[in-house]
Design a protein around this nucleic acid. Structure first.
Lengths: 329, 329
DNA sequence: ATGAAAGCGCTAACAG
DNA sequence: CTGTTAGCGCTTTCAT
């Protein structure tokens, strides 16, 4: 076993509680003793066992961060921002991937619960009912979903989507398609509502074509349907779908942006590297990660009494190369 | 506080130790009692506190996974595979991102240490010396680096690199460039050695041009130098660098693969989505993740006595669209 | 098969 | 300022 508080106590000739205090409330220990203890601890390579500490304090100083798919380029910036923010508050973040599986998501939350002080749920696939039930066990902050009783960080896709639809209309496109995301997704619902409203306002037609999945495969597979739908502008659930779609359209002999204009969502790395560079809606993922951690930490220290805050973050359209003026038909 | 073992014991009229046994060694409990306890636990929503269990057993059933940069598309598949494999062995994986910072890496390891049974170090930036010292505290498995005393999973880039150089030589390229990675990187050293040897064998010239960083920015910034070096074939440290380079070359008026052939490493999503599709060297990341977990778990149960295993995984060249026959000069 | 008791590493009153 | 004592939730002998 590793070196414990007792080893340090023996070695420095003080009681364990003094050693404990040296680390958890240094001001309660005389400078001389503190320095001696610190020196001995250093020499022995002692590091407090946070798990054991958690048993008495009830604070693990860990946060859980649950995402549907780490491989989705949407998440890494959020994760990094959350980790950095947490670190500044002397917290650690444990990331877990649910593989888009609600059951696994629930299981992960339940096991993680006891090892963390709070859980950050990003774009959950779980039903609100289940989340609310789990919420009594541990504070939650939910990103991109409204859940009763939990603090929430929302990225206002509607805003960007409206801008996107207007952009397409301005370019002369009269028949548009929307490729939405998974049915459980709040973001997808928002997109759909905003797109429908914006299309109506701009007086353009909007068809909803649900792809098989929120990935490039989904977009790729949807290309044929899109090509046959007679639309010239497409708004996709995310960059991956848009990229897959562009690839699929190319196979159909259709060029972007010459034949069709395509807009993605996320402003992800693949989208920026793509050729044509993807016109996309930026999601404030880093800001969301930081904000979520702050809200979570607030909820943790507030305990039961916390009021569920709601943060709403802006999204924006970034016009790059995958959209252009309508040429045909 | 949440429901504990004591609540279950009281409610079901047995001693806590019986409840404990029901969960940790069910065969030691009579079927009747077990069922009753299980029913009560279920009703109360009891879940054993793994952290508390760890205090007595010395096993947290957690694994730490440390990566330099989650946003690097190389890591997610490895992380996912590791998580899945660990889950099957009733282990959980906590992922942490070091932001390419050795100091942060060390700090993370030290805090993680006590909360996990083993640590998976992926492409570490820390010096071997430090890793070896830390290794006495907790079992390590290191991916893509040879460290004394720790099990190691190596991806044999050399293999793929040799194939890549041969491929370029066969296409008629006589003057090649290598854009290596960060100096601390084992993979990069291996690449360099293999590329040099393969170039010599094929009788082609090889220039080493170190980019500013292992990212698309690094590749982008290196484009000018590459364009001026008079080479027609380039092998990059990873797909990101390759993608950035292609982008930068385009700005110089140079086309890939018409003017230069470019090979990446990783077979990442952006590379597959790019146009031209990137010729690349596949890294067996998923296999490495699974293998690393298996080795780590073996090391954990073996304790001190474990012999440091070494696993070597194959890499392969995948020819796509970013390489072609030499045309000029 | 079950209960009793000790203890994992640490913190938190309570004395002194 | 420091030592004493009890206990966090759980497992693990040792009895019975």
């Amino acid at each position: 076993m590793a070196v414990t508080i007792r080893d340090v106590a023996r070695e420095s000739g003080v009681h364990v509680s003094t050693v404990s205090r040296t680390f958890s409330s240094p001001h309660l220990v005389s400078v001389r003793t503190r320095n001696r203890v610190l020196a001995v601890a250093e020499g022995l390579g002692y590091r407090p066992n946070r798990a054991a500490r958690a048993l008495t304090t009830g604070r693990t100083h860990n946060l859980g961060l649950i995402v549907a798919d780490i491989a989705n380029p949407f998440f890494p910036p959020l994760i990094k921002a959350a980790q950095a923010q947490a670190r500044e508050r002397d917290y650690h973040v444990f990331v877990a991937d649910t593989d888009e599986d609600p059951l696994l998501e629930q299981e992960l939350i339940e096991t993680l619960c006891k090892q963390v002080d709070g859980v950050l749920l990003c774009s959950p696939r779980l039903s609100n009912r289940v989340i609310e039930r789990l919420g009594v066990q541990v504070p939650f902050v939910v990103v991109n979903r409204r859940v009763k009783g939990s603090a929430t960080v929302l990225m206002d896709v509607g805003q960007g989507v409206r801008a996107g639809i207007a952009h397409l209309a301005t370019l002369g496109h009269r028949r548009l398609a929307l490729l939405p995301g998974p049915s459980g997704s709040w973001t997808s619902e928002e997109m759909q509502a905003a797109a429908t409203a914006a299309a109506a306002e701009a007086g353009v037609e909007l068809t909803v074509l649900r792809p098989a999945g929120p990935t490039e495969q989904g977009g790729l597979a949807a290309a044929e349907t899109v090509a046959g739908a007679g639309v010239t502008g497409v708004l996709c659930y995310n960059d991956l779908v848009a990229l897959g779609l562009i690839e699929g359209l190319r196979k159909q002999g259709l060029c972007v942006p010459e034949d069709l204009s395509v807009i993605g969502v996320d402003d992800s790395l693949p989208g920026r590297l793509n050729r044509p560079k993807l016109t996309t809606i930026t999601m404030p993922t880093a800001a969301a990660g930081r904000m979520a951690v702050d809200l979570l930490l607030a909820a943790v220290s507030a305990g039961e009494s916390g009021i569920a805050t709601l943060a709403r973050l802006e999204t924006n359209l970034v016009v790059r190369e995958s959209t252009g003026a309508r040429r045909s038909p």
